[in-house]
Amino acid sequence: MTLSILDLAPITSGGTARAALLNTLDLARRAEAFGYHRYWLAEHHFAAGVASSAPAVLIGLVAAATSRIRVGSGAVQLGHQTPLSVVEQFGLIDALYPGRIDLGIGRSGQRRTELAAKAPPPEAGRVVGGLLIPPPFDWSRLAKHPHLAFHASLLQQPGARTPDFAEQIDDVIAFLTGTHEAHAVPGEGAEVELWILGSSGGQSAQVAGERGLPFAANYHVSPSSVLDAVEAYREAFKPSKALAEPYVIVSADVVVAADDATARELAKPYGLWVRSIRTGEGARTYPTPEEADAHVWSAGDLALVKDRIDTRFVGTPDAVAERLHVLRKVTGADELLVTTITHDHADRVRSYELLAGAWDGRS
């Protein structure tokens, strides 16, 4: 199947981290049965509503709970770790579950300085081949939030300096292939599949292309720049031992239910949750539809989340599958990475099940 899953191990309102992690293990088993190709875990810190703070640990648990589905990171934040530590972690998992592990890497905090530097120029949204490309979100204000600088200081040793991203990726490749002067054990010779994740046409896309690695572009996080990201990657691509041709995954936020009204009801809390992220508070526990109804939205609040709400795929199985095919066609994606968050775990499982059924009949 050309559908895969990105899971944040969401902690819901009234729930606990333990419940969220048990739900992740349950969803991974079911995703394997539904036929999904990959199951990726995100890395987020200081978020009350997200339990996936240590993806390597969680990947090991998910791999142990499943038997066939590929399991990986979407993505390890390389700015907070050394290439050696990442390769050793994923080499250890691969030693136990060989040939099933994906190492997805992102620039994370390394891009924060760029985002804080300036606001994007005014730009109107547009529709390309039936796919909405909204105006760019202004990250500059959020990137300057004092919470982010404080959190970044806690994720690294005092005085630590993060090397250039390209240098770090070259070190990861060298450790995996055994061409580094030092040897990572476990890690050297591991069968992990190395991925680069990116939200723009910047360094991540360039590095992925120039090194002939597969690339994952974020429509669900940064929908305005997804086409720039995949275009930059393809233009920079050079064949490698890993890939003869470019390979792209594109992500999407999805909620599927048996009817439109139910899907819209399940999707209600999403805007309030995104608002908590974009105000710099950090992802709150995922609200109930009733909590979402109780929130009084200001014009500023609505503007803060509009691009994410407008580009979410919500509806019946066939309708969402059709819209996802548009996303795949317009971006030229080889695979789609879908992420679904609902307050009740059963609704989330059912959403993935319905989508798999509809997609299988169209893929």
Rank of each mutant, 00 (worst) to 15 (best):
L132K: 14
T288E: 06
H44R: 10
A48Y: 09
R38V: 01
V338L: 03
D7H: 05
G361K: 15
V230N: 07
A75C: 14
W139N: 10
T342G: 09
R70W: 06
Y352Q: 02
E210Y: 03
G129N: 10
V250P: 01
G187S: 03
G104R: 12
I105E: 03
Q89K: 07
D26M: 00
S276D: 11
E32I: 06
P146V: 13
A124R: 15
F215V: 02
A299E: 15
H44D: 05
R278F: 14
E32A: 08
A117P: 00
G202M: 06
V254D: 00
G109T: 04
A258Q: 14
S108Y: 05
D301K: 12
Q77C: 15
P120N: 11
T331S: 13
A9G: 15
H147C: 11
E245T: 11
I105M: 03
R348S: 03
D228R: 13
E265V: 01
G198D: 07
L337F: 00
G357Q: 09
S4W: 09
Y233F: 06
S73F: 03
S224Y: 09
A143S: 15
A190V: 02
A42R: 07
R161G: 02
K329I: 00
Y270G: 00
L25A: 12
R29T: 11
Y270L: 13
L41G: 03
V71K: 09
W40G: 04
Q157F: 02
A319H: 12
D228Y: 11
F34D: 14
Q168R: 14
P158A: 05
K144G: 04
A217Q: 05
E245H: 13
R348E: 10
K268E: 13
R308L: 14
L103Y: 06
T311A: 02
T331P: 09
D102H: 12
E123K: 14
A119Y: 02
D307C: 08
A333Q: 01
Y233H: 09
E193G: 12
P186E: 06
F150Y: 12
G201P: 08
Q77W: 04
S85W: 00
Y97M: 05
F150E: 15
T279Y: 05
A303C: 01
G282T: 08
A56L: 01
I93M: 02
T113V: 11
R18S: 10
E210S: 15
F90W: 04
E290M: 03
A152P: 01
L155S: 08
A292R: 07
S240H: 02
I249C: 01
Y233C: 09
A252M: 06
R29H: 07
F137E: 07
L25I: 10
A9K: 05
A283D: 06
V230W: 10
R18E: 13
D347E: 14
V192W: 03
R18T: 13
G315A: 01
Y233L: 09
V256D: 04
A149F: 05
A160R: 12
V305P: 11
P98S: 04
A56G: 00
Y219A: 10
E335F: 09
A48C: 08
I249S: 12
G361S: 14
D253N: 12
G189M: 10
A51T: 06
L132N: 04
P289T: 07
G125W: 07
R275Q: 11
P214N: 07
